[in-house]
Design a binder for these strands. Structure first.
Length: 809
RNA sequence: GCUCGGGUGGUGGAAUGGUAGACACGAGGGACUUAAAAUCCCUUGGUAGCAAUACUGUGCGGGUUCGAGUCCCGCCCCGAGCACCA
C-alpha cells in the first residue's frame, strides 16, 4: 500500500486537479431551474503582487466545501472567480518598479490562479473575468452611462478627501475613522475639487427597505442602516433681521422651535459667505474659518470642546415667537449634513453645552415627568433630551413630543416657512479618481467646458498605452497625447475625454452579473442568464465591505431593476462574513510582525486537503482565529488515519452494527452542520467516527465508502484517490451526499441521568422506549440516589424523555 | 459617547434551559527504537481520596426555574463599528 505521504509527494493532488479540469467536472450546468440552481459567490479578490494569503484560502475553501456539498445534494452549482484588477496598489507598484501595471497585474493574476487551483477549488474557469480587461470595463463604463441617462450622475465642486501620498480623491468609506488613507495610512486632507458624483442618496429609502427581505447577518444590516442614517424631521426658515435673506435649518426636533435661542452655522458653509458684508467682526470670523479648514477631520473629532464665534451685527428671527436671536459659527456644525445650519435650544446636549460656554440664554420648553429631573432641568443644571410636556411653546403647550412635532410641521407648512423633511447621513458617491489604472470615465468635454457622454456604441474607451503614470496630483490621462487626439479625431476639434478614471468600486459592484455571461459583447449579461442564475444564493465576503462594496452592489442592482433589465432588486439572497485568520501570536498577520503564513507553503508541506480542512477546523467561519502550526499537524494526522483505514476494509461481510450506527449519526450531524456552515463541528464529527473505526479490527466497505463521501467536500483529493483505490472508475465528486437511515440513528438503549435538587447523583442505562413511570421508578432505585434521599419522600419527580429524571426533595 | 459582538481548561474551541469542556492542540506517563522522529496506548478543569465518591467550577453580583454557560436585572473587562449627523 502506498502511504498518504507518498501520494502527496507524487503530486497526487495535482493529478486529481488535472482530472477535474479535463473532465470539465465543475463546468456550470446549462439546464437549471429556479429551484435547483445554486449560485455561490466567493468575494472578488484583488490580485496583489504578494500572492494569495490565508484569508483568501479561507474564503475559497469555505465556498468550495459548500459548493461541493450542494452539488452532491443535487444542486446545479455556479461558482466562479475573477479579479478586482484595477486600482492603486498595481499603479503604485508600477511607479516604483517602472513596469506597466497591465504587465504586473496579469502576472499577479496568473500566480493567483495557480495558487487557487492548487487548493483544489471547484470553480468554472470559463467564467473568469478581470476588471482591467477592456471587454469587462466596457461594461463598467456602460453602467456609468446608464446612471447618467437615468439622471443619477452629476458634477460638483466639493471638499473631498484627498490623500497626498496616493495623490487622489477617496470616498468616505476609503478613509479610516481616524482620518487616514485606508491604503497607505497617510492623513487625509480636505480639498475642493470638481468631481463626478453618483446619486446613491436617491436610493436611500430603497436601500433601507431592501434590507428587510434579505438573509444577511443582523449586525451587517444594522451597520448599513446606520450608514444610511435616515432621520425624520423638518426644515425651517429663519429670516435675517432687516434683510430679505433667509437661513434654512434642518431639525429632528421641530417641536422645540419656541425654545430656539440662537443659530449656529457651519464655518465652511455657504451661509457665512453670504452674510459676509453684514458681519461686523469679519476679521475674527475669517480667522476662525481659516483655523477650522486647517484642522484635520481627526482634530475636529478629538477636540470635543465646542468653540465658535458670534456673527456680530447679524440677527435671525425665530419664526415661532418672532424673537431676535444671535447667530454663531462653530465647527460642531457640519457643512456637509443637512443645510449646514442648525437652530439651538435647551434640549440638545451640544447646544446646551455651547450656550453655557458663551452665556447664551436658554429657554426650557419641555417638562420631564420625573419631578427631581424637572427641578434640575428648570435650573439649567442638566440638559433634558427625553419626552415630556411642552410649555413656553405657544400653541404647542401641553402636548408631548410626537403630537407637538406633527402640529408644528403642519403649522410651518401652512405658513410656508418650513416643511417635514427626511435627512440622510449617506452621501452621494464620488467616483472620480485622478489616477491611471482604472476605467476611463466615458464623458467628453470641449474647450468651453461643455460636457457630453460618450455614445454607448463607442465603448469601450480604451486606456491609452503611452502614459507616464507618475503621480502629479493631476490625472495621468491628461498627459497621453494619443488619448486626447483619439477624442478629437472622433468627436471634432476641442473635444477631449474626461481624464479621470472610475473608482474601482464601480468595477466590483457588478462582477457577479458578468460571471453569468462573461464573453457577451452586446450586453453586460444576457437576460436569459440573468433570469436563470440571479440572485446570488450564497455570498461570502469580509465585513470590511459592508458600507462600500455591498451597498454599491445593491444600488447597481436596484438601478438595473428600475431600468427593466432584471426582475429582482437585491443581488445577494444570503450573505455571510468570514473572520480574520490571525498570526500564531494572535495579532493580525502582517509583514511588520513577521507572523504571516503563506498558504502555498502549507499546501506544499501538508497538502491542499490539510490546508482546506485546517482553516475550517480552527473555529467558526465568522470568527477571528489564530493560526496554529500544531493544529495543522493535527488535521494532517486525521487524514493519515483516514488513509490507513483502507487496510481494514475487508471483503467478508462482517456485521459491524456499532460503527454503522455511529456513521449514520455522523451523517446526520455533519449534514445539519453543513447547512449552517458549521464546518468546524462537522469535521469534529468525522474525527470522532474515524477514531472509532480505528478501534475496530475490520471495516465494512459500505461504511468506509460513506465516510469517503462525507469527506469529499472537505478533502476532495484524498477522497478521489481512495475512491479509485476501492476500484471505482468514476469521480467521487459526482456521487450523491449520503442520507442517514432514521432507524440506525435511533438508539436502542440510552443513558438517563438522575438529578436530586438539580445536582447529578447517578445515571442508568435503559431501553429507549422506557415509559415515564418505569424511568422514574428505576431512578429511585439507584444506589447513590437512595443514599442521598435518606429515606425521604420526593416532593416531585420530573422526567425529560430520553434525557433525565429530576427528583426534588 | 452611542451601537453591536464576546468573556467557558494550559491553548483553539463544543454544548435545541437538561451529564459543562465534544473535537483538536499542548502537557504528563508508557510502548516501539541503540537513539531520535514518526506511530500507538493511557491520563489530563481544580481540590481531597487508592477508589467509589464528594466539594468546586463557564468575568462579577443578584433573580427566575426541579434544573442556568444558555433566560431576566445590575455591574466589570475585551473586541468591532459609528462618531459633534442637529
Amino acid at each position: 500500500m502506498k502511504t498518504y505521504k507518498e501520494f502527496l509527494e507524487n503530486k497526487g493532488e495535482a493529478k486529481w486537479q488535472k482530472y477535474w479540469e479535463k473532465k470539465k467536472l465543475f463546468k456550470t450546468p446549462e439546464e437549471v431551474t429556479k429551484t435547483n440552481k445554486y449560485y455561490i459567490l466567493p468575494q472578488l479578490p484583488y490580485p496583489s503582487g504578494s500572492g494569495l494569503h490565508v484569508g483568501h484560502a479561507e474564503v475559497y475553501s469555505a465556498c468550495d466545501i459548500y459548493a461541493r456539498y450542494q452539488r452532491m445534494k443535487g444542486k446545479k452549482v455556479l461558482q466562479a472567480i475573477g479579479w478586482d484588477s484595477f486600482g492603486l496598489p498595481a499603479e503604485n507598484y508600477a511607479i516604483k518598479n517602472n513596469v506597466h501595471p497591465k504587465i504586473s497585474t496579469d502576472k499577479a493574476i496568473d500566480n493567483f490562479r495557480e495558487q487557487i487551483k492548487s487548493l483544489g477549488i471547484s470553480v468554472d474557469w470559463d467564467k473568469e473575468v478581470g476588471a482591467h480587461n477592456s471587454d469587462y470595463y466596457k461594461w463598467t463604463q456602460w453602467f456609468f452611462l446608464l446612471f447618467y441617462k437615468r439622471g443619477l450622475v452629476y458634477r460638483k465642486k466639493q471638499a473631498v478627501n484627498w490623500c497626498k501620498s496616493c495623490k487622489t480623491v477617496l470616498a468616505n468609506d476609503q478613509v479610516t475613522s481616524e482620518g487616514y488613507c485606508e491604503r497607505c495610512d497617510t492623513q487625509i486632507i480636505q480639498k475642493d475639487m470638481e468631481q463626478w458624483y453618483i446619486k446613491v442618496t436617491e436610493y436611500a429609502d430603497r436601500l433601507l427597505e431592501g434590507l428587510d427581505k434579505i438573509d444577511w447577518p443582523e449586525e451587517t444590516k444594522k451597520r448599513q442602516r446606520d450608514w444610511i442614517g435616515r432621520s425624520e424631521g423638518a426644515s425651517v426658515e429663519f429670516k435675517i433681521l432687516n434683510s430679505e435673506f433667509k437661513i434654512e435649518v434642518f431639525t429632528t426636533r421641530p417641536d422645540t422651535l419656541f425654545g430656539a435661542t440662537y443659530i449656529v452655522l457651519a464655518p465652511e458653509g455657504q451661509y457665512v459667505q453670504d452674510l459676509k458684508d453684514r458681519i461686523q467682526n469679519w476679521d475674527e470670523v475669517k480667522k476662525y474659518i481659516e483655523a477650522t479648514s486647517k484642522k484635520t477631520e481627526l482634530a475636529r473629532q478629538i477636540d470635543k470642546e465646542k468653540i465658535g464665534v458670534e456673527l456680530k451685527g447679524v440677527k435671525a428671527i425665530n419664526p415661532a415667537n418672532n424673537e431676535e436671536i444671535p447667530i454663531y459659527i462653530a465647527d460642531f456644525v457640519l457643512a456637509s449634513y443637512g443645510t449646514g445650519a442648525v437652530f439651538a435650544d435647551a434640549h440638545d446636549e451640544r447646544d446646551f453645552e455651547f450656550a453655557k460656554k458663551y452665556n447664551i440664554p436658554l429657554l426650557v420648553t419641555i417638562k420631564p415627568d420625573d419631578e427631581n429631573e424637572w427641578k434640575k432641568v428648570q435650573n439649567l443644571e442638566v440638559c433634558y433630551e427625553g419626552d415630556g410636556v411642552h410649555f413656553n411653546s405657544g400653541f404647542l403647550d401641553g402636548l408631548r413630543i410626537n403630537e407637538a412635532k406633527t402640529k408644528i410641521i403642519k403649522w410651518l407648512e401652512e405658513k410656508n416657512i418650513g416643511k417635514g423633511k427626511v435627512q440622510y447621513k449617506l452621501r452621494d458617491w464620488s467616483v472620480s479618481r485622478q489616477r491611471f489604472w482604472g476605467a476611463p470615465i466615458p464623458m467628453l468635454q470641449n474647450e468651453e467646458g461643455e460636457m457630453k457622454p460618450v455614445p454607448e456604441e463607442d465603448l469601450p474607451i480604451l486606456l491609452p498605452e503611452d502614459v507616464d503614470f507618475k503621480p502629479t496630483g493631476e490625472s495621468p490621462l491628461n498627459y497621453s497625447k494619443e488619448f486626447q487626439e483619439r477624442a478629437e479625431k472622433k468627436y471634432g476639434k476641442g473635444w477631449k475625454y474626461e481624464p479621470d478614471t472610475l473608482d474601482t468600486f464601480m468595477c466590483s459592484s457588478w462582477y457577479f452579473f458578468r460571471y453569468l455571461d462573461p464573453k457577451n459583447d452586446s450586453a453586460f449579461a444576457s437576460p436569459e442568464a440573468l433570469k436563470k442564475w440571479m440572485p446570488v444564493d450564497f455570498y461570502l465576503g469580509g465585513p470590511e465591505h459592508v458600507n462600500g462594496h455591498l451597498l454599491y452592489s445593491r444600488f447597481f442592482t436596484k438601478v438595473l431593476f428600475d431600468a427593466g433589465y432584471i426582475d429582482f432588486d437585491e443581488p445577494f439572497k444570503v450573505h455571510r462574513h468570514q473572520g480574520l485568520i490571525l498570526g500564531p501570536d494572535n495579532r493580525k498577520m502582517s509583514k511588520r510582525w513577521g507572523n504571516t503564513i503563506n498558504p502555498t507553503d502549507v499546501v506544499n508541506q501538508y497538502g491542499a486537503d490539510t490546508m482546506r480542512m485546517y482553516e475550517m477546523f480552527i473555529g467558526p467561519l465568522e470568527d477571528d482565529k489564530p493560526w496554529n502550526e500544531n493544529g495543522v499537524k493535527g488535521v494532517r494526522r486525521f487524514l493519515d488515519k483516514v488513509w490507513k483505514l483502507q487496510e481494514k476494509v475487508g471483503d467478508e461481510k462482517k456485521e459491524d452494527e456499532r460503527i454503522e450506527k455511529l456513521t449514520h449519526k455522523v451523517i446526520k450531524k455533519a449534514s445539519e452542520d453543513l447547512e449552517t456552515l458549521g464546518f468546524n463541528t462537522a469535521i469534529a464529527e468525522m474525527m470522532k467516527i474515524v477514531n472509532e473505526m480505528n478501534k475496530e479490527e475490520s471495516l465494512q466497505l459500505a461504511t468506509y465508502s460513506l465516510l469517503l463521501r462525507l469527506l469529499t467536500p472537505f478533502a476532495p483529493h484524498m477522497a478521489e484517490e481512495l475512491w479509485s483505490i476501492l476500484g471505482h472508475k468514476d469521480s467521487i465528486c459526482i456521487q450523491s451526499w449520503p442520507e442517514y437511515d432514521e432507524n440506525l440513528v435511533k438508539d436502542d438503549e440510552l443513558t438517563i441521568v438522575v438529578q436530586i435538587n438539580g445536582k447529578l447523583r447517578g445515571d442508568m442505562t435503559v431501553s429507549a422506549d422506557i415509559s415515564e413511570d418505569d424511568a422514574k421508578k428505576q431512578a429511585l432505585e439507584i444506589e447513590n440516589v437512595v443514599k442521598w434521599l435518606e429515606g425521604k419522600e420526593p416532593k416531585k419527580v420530573i422526567y425529560v424523555k430520553g434525557k433525565l429524571v429530576s427528583i426534588v426533595v
